[in-house]
C-alpha cells in the first residue's frame, strides 16, 4: 500500500524490495510426485510382461500402419464429413416450421443418441444376417400383388447385396457417421440458436428466404459456437474408431494390434502400443483444436456481442425511463 503511494508521487520509483511469498507446499508436492514417478518407471521397466522390444518391433508393421491410415484416420475423416453434413441437415429440419420434418429429426436424434455406438456398430456389421439383399422400391409389392391376384409381383427399383456393401468398412462408416450426425445436429442446433434473433429478422425484412438467410447470415455466425465442440467430436470419433473391432473392420489400428496380441500371446504389449498410438494421434488433433479455438475466440467475438447486447439493454431501460411510462415492458 505504502510503496504504491510513494511510487505514484515520485518520478522514478526505486525498485520494490520485498521478500517473496514462499511456497513450501510445492516442494513437498514435487518430492511426492518424484517418488511416484520413480515407482511407476520401476514398474514399467522391471516387469517383463511389458516386453518393450517386442512391442516396438510390432507396432510399426505395415498391416498396423495400413490399419491406422485407413481404419482410423480415413474413417475418422469420412465419418466426420458425413456426420457434420447430415448433422446440419437434421438440425435445420429440427428448427423448421414443418412439424413433420421436425418430428423426423427428433426421432432421428433420439434413436441414434439412445443406442450406444458399440451396439450400433455390432448391429450394422451384422445386418447381412437379416437381409442378404437391400432393395429399394414399392413397399409390400408382393403382398399387394396377391390382393390383385398377381403372383410374386416385384416392383424393385434397385438393390445390392448387403454382403458386398454393408460389410467391414462401409458398415462401420455408416454406423459411426449416422450416430455422429445425431450429436452434430444438437451442436449445430445450439449454434444456430445462439445467433441473435435480430439477425434473422433483419434478413427476412430484406426479403431473404429461410434457406438464403440460414446459408448467408445465420450459419456463418453459428460457426463460432459450432467449431470448438466439433473439434471435441473429432477427437472422440478418432478414439471411437477402435469400436470398429465389433463390426468387425479388419483394416483398423486396434483390430490389427489386438490380432497380433492374440496370435502371439503378447496381449498386453499390444494394448500398450494401442495406448501410445491413440495418445499420439489425439495429441495431434488437440494441437489443431488449440489453434482453431484461439482463432475463433478472438476478434469481434463474444466480447463485442456482449457489449452490443448490453447497449441494447441500457437503451431499453433508458428509453422506458425517458418516456416515463408505466405498465409491462
Amino acid at each position: 500500500m505504502e510503496s504504491h503511494d510513494t511510487s505514484t508521487v515520485r518520478a522514478r520509483p526505486e525498485p520494490l524490495r520485498a521478500v517473496p511469498v514462499r511456497h513450501p507446499g510445492r516442494w513437498v508436492a514435487v518430492a511426492v510426485l518424484a517418488v511416484l514417478v520413480a515407482m511407476f518407471v520401476h514398474l514399467l521397466v522391471t516387469n517383463d510382461a511389458f516386453n518393450w522390444s517386442f512391442m516396438v518391433d510390432k507396432m510399426f508393421r505395415p498391416p498396423i500402419i495400413e490399419g491406422l491410415l485407413r481404419g482410423t484416420v480415413l474413417m475418422t475423416v469420412s465419418a466426420m464429413l458425413i456426420g457434420v453434413t447430415l448433422g446440419v441437415v437434421v438440425a435445420v429440419m429440427r428448427l423448421s416450421d414443418n412439424p413433420i420434418l421436425r418430428g423426423v429429426a427428433w426421432l432421428y436424434t433420439w434413436f441414434f443418441r439412445a443406442v450406444p455406438r458399440l451396439v450400433l456398430l455390432a448391429v450394422f456389421g451384422n445386418i447381412g444376417i437379416l437381409w442378404s439383399r437391400i432393395e429399394f422400391g414399392v413397399p409390400f409389392d408382393t403382398q399387394l400383388g396377391q390382393l390383385f391376384g398377381i403372383d410374386n409381383l416385384q416392383l424393385r427399383l434397385f438393390g445390392f447385396s448387403s454382403r458386398d456393401i454393408l460389410t467391414g468398412f462401409m458398415a462401420g462408416l455408416l454406423g459411426l457417421a449416422l450416430s455422429e450426425a445425431a450429436y452434430m445436429a444438437e451442436i449445430v442446433r445450439a449454434g444456430i440458436q445462439s445467433v441473435d434473433e435480430g439477425q434473422t429478422e433483419a434478413a427476412q425484412a430484406l426479403g431473404m428466404s429461410r434457406g438464403q438467410l440460414l446459408r448467408r447470415v445465420v450459419l456463418p455466425q453459428a460457426m463460432r459456437v459450432i467449431i470448438p465442440p466439433t473439434g471435441n467430436e473429432t477427437i472422440a470419433m478418432l478414439k471411437d474408431t477402435s469400436l470398429l473391432l465389433y463390426v468387425p473392420v479388419s483394416v483398423e489400428l486396434f483390430f490389427q494390434l489386438d490380432a497380433v496380441g492374440k496370435r502371439t500371446f503378447q496381449i498386453f504389449p499390444m494394448y500398450v502400443a494401442a495406448c501410445l498410438w491413440y495418445l499420439f494421434l489425439t495429441s495431434i488433433l488437440l494441437v489443431g483444436q488449440y489453434f482453431l479455438e484461439r482463432h475463433f475466440g478472438k476478434g469481434y467475438g463474444p466480447a463485442g456481442r456482449a457489449r452490443l447486447r448490453l447497449r441494447g439493454m441500457t437503451a431499453e431501460t433508458g428509453g422506458g425511463g425517458n418516456s416515463g411510462t408505466v405498465g409491462p415492458a
Binding site: L206, S209, Q221
Partner: peptide, 29 residues
C-alpha cells in the same frame, strides 16, 4: 419474401450482419 423486398425496415438494435463488412452488408441482399 418478395413482398418484403419493397419494404425497408430499420431496427432499434441495428441488426447489422457482424461477419460482413459495411459494403457487404449493403450489397448482400
Amino acid at each position: 419474401a418478395a413482398q418484403r423486398r419493397s419494404i425497408g425496415m430499420v431496427f432499434q438494435r441495428f441488426n447489422l450482419f457482424p461477419h460482413m463488412t459495411v459494403l457487404g452488408n449493403v450489397t448482400e441482399a
